[in-house]
Design a protein around this nucleic acid. Structure first.
Lengths: 198, 198
DNA sequence: GTCTATACACGGATAGAC
DNA sequence: GTCTATCCGTGTATAGAC
């Protein structure tokens, strides 16, 4: 094997851990599985990370930052509902493309909540998603040239709840049609709380 | 120790397992922890359950059936919003009273999704909650003497998503004020989709 | 049927050779 | 710095005494 720096090793291991989690879930993600996946000898693990917890910390940070700000398209002559609908389905398409990845996100959060050394990180991670959702709603309002009739922090929290809930539920039963219909209903709701809405 | 029938033993072990899960999470719920909690010798485990998976199956079934249908109060002269608000907060109060129990529900579902022998059970469990939510919305409409303007299955799925999402998010950050505000917003939405609504 | 003792695999972490 | 061999705890499951 080629000789790599500790930083590159860390990188390898974090990415390998994410692949293992996607494949088999967080519970089955052992240090042994991770080093095998990375093609790294077991002994290497503990001079890259002090412990498994430290690896998971890095994994959570990596996954959190990986979330890309969704693009808000701005077609001429589209109704509010259409713009909102498109934005929501842009998110939804990413869920459908990589279901296992999203499942891992939820698994990780719950795992972290149970580990004293990781619970704070879970809260930060959630706060980050909440902020993203707020920014996204702001961008959406800007794209529509208007504002929301509902207090933005409340709308953001409510919206994150809806998206998390619908995602989690779809991950369980994979009912595309029902999930899509529920998402459309959320779009209809959002269109009803833009100022000057119809 | 007193001599008990296998059925009573099973009962004891399931209840003990739930307590252990509430205390430390599903991941830490080992057969050893369960039998210790139940005050049952380790050897007893495997003539009550063929395997740990069989125990978890019983636990999931037990927890699912434990969910009580919420009461829909019917005060005179209350607005639609007030009735809906009360119904939602009745649910929410139960979440706040027993947060750990609800967290376990989500953990169990995700655990089950990763176990081939339990995945179907997870889907059934979710379907059960979906049905309950539909029935609850029907009861609510009946109590209001009206009906919903949104297709009931869609409304039920959307609503279950909202409640699951808000619950999960609150379990992470425990922000009572924000959670309550988001829940109220959902109540406002529901009030806007009753026929003859205002 | 009931419990004690134990088998056996696997997990995280480390010692120590190179 | 890198890797092999190993320690030691814990997990599920079972054998076999009572």
């Amino acid at each position: 094997m080629t000789r790599l720096s500790a930083d590159e090793r860390r990188e390898q291991l974090v990415e390998a851990a994410i692949r293992v989690m996607i494949r088999g879930g967080v519970a089955r993600t052992t240090t042994r599985a991770v080093v095998t996946e990375a093609g790294v000898p077991l002994g290497a693990f503990h001079y890259c990370f002090r412990s498994k917890e430290e690896l998971l910390q890095s994994v959570i940070e990596r996954i959190t930052r990986r979330t890309l700000p969704p693009v808000t398209a701005r077609p001429e002559g589209a109704t509010s509902y259409e713009v909102i609908h498109a934005a929501l389905h842009a998110y939804w398409d990413r869920v459908c493309e990589r279901p296992a990845e999203h499942l891992v996100t939820y698994e990780l959060t719950q795992y972290a909540l149970r580990e004293p050394g990781l619970a704070d990180l879970a809260r930060k991670q959630y706060q980050h998603y909440l902020d993203l959702n707020r920014e996204h709603l702001e961008a959406l309002a800007r794209a529509l040239g208007t504002s929301w009739t509902v207090d933005l922090p409340v709308l953001a929290r409510h919206g994150l709840g809806v998206l998390d809930g619908l995602t989690l539920n779809w991950l369980i039963d994979r009912d595309d049609a029902q999930a899509s219909a529920a998402l459309d209903e959320y779009a209809r709701y959002l269109a009803s709380v833009v100022r000057d809405a119809g």
